[in-house]
């Protein structure tokens, strides 16, 4: 909770209710769940660009190894909503490092119910994580990064899960 104490805050409901309203709007516009997830992911990437300087100036130690990305994600969750991941698992798959991050009682989709099981309401968080890692990719010595939300509390899953693949 080190970073959380230092950030300016607003009510979480402004974020969650606004996001749900935007999802409903996009559905009415005829957007498919995949398109909606992608739009939210891009918004998350936009958020990352907006907060990058402020966030990195508060980070105690920038990870230099992709295996330590879990620590950075925990700092990002702390900075965003004062929460930490319930579980982070790092594994190697051929030329990739895969980090799975589980968040129980995820605050980003708190009390929300996704209007479709194909819509992952925390796709924005996946975009946020992806872009932050992308912007320190040289330090991490990685070429590519992709983050997807694979489970979401708002769909009825037990937890929100973000899977990060780094090549």
């Amino acid at each position: 909770m080190f970073m959380w104490r230092k950030v300016e805050k607003m009510n979480l409901i402004s974020y969650t209710s606004g996001n749900l309203a935007f999802v409903m709007y996009l559905m009415e516009m005829g957007k498919s769940p995949e398109e909606i997830n992608e739009i939210f992911k891009n918004i998350g990437r936009r958020i990352a660009d907006g907060i990058f300087d402020d966030f990195m100036s508060k980070v105690k130690r920038v990870p230099e190894n992709p295996d330590d990305v879990g620590e950075l994600i925990n700092m990002l969750l702390d900075y965003s909503v004062g929460q930490k991941a319930s579980d982070i698992e790092v594994r190697r798959e051929e030329r990739e490092i895969v980090v799975s991050c589980k968040v129980r009682s995820c605050k980003f989709c708190l009390d929300l119910e996704s209007p479709s099981p194909m819509i992952f309401l925390c796709s924005g968080v996946a975009g946020l994580i992806e872009r932050i890692i992308e912007r320190i990719s040289r330090t991490l010595r990685i070429k590519e990064v992709e983050c997807r939300e694979t489970k979401c509390c708002a769909r009825g899953d037990e937890y929100c899960e973000f899977v990060i693949r780094m090549a």
Partner: peptide, 15 residues
């Protein structure tokens, strides 16, 4: 009030 980082809410709106 349950809270969130204000900067992230602003940039989400901007998005």
């Amino acid at each position: 009030a349950k809270k969130m980082n204000a900067m992230e809410i602003r940039y989400s709106l901007l998005g």
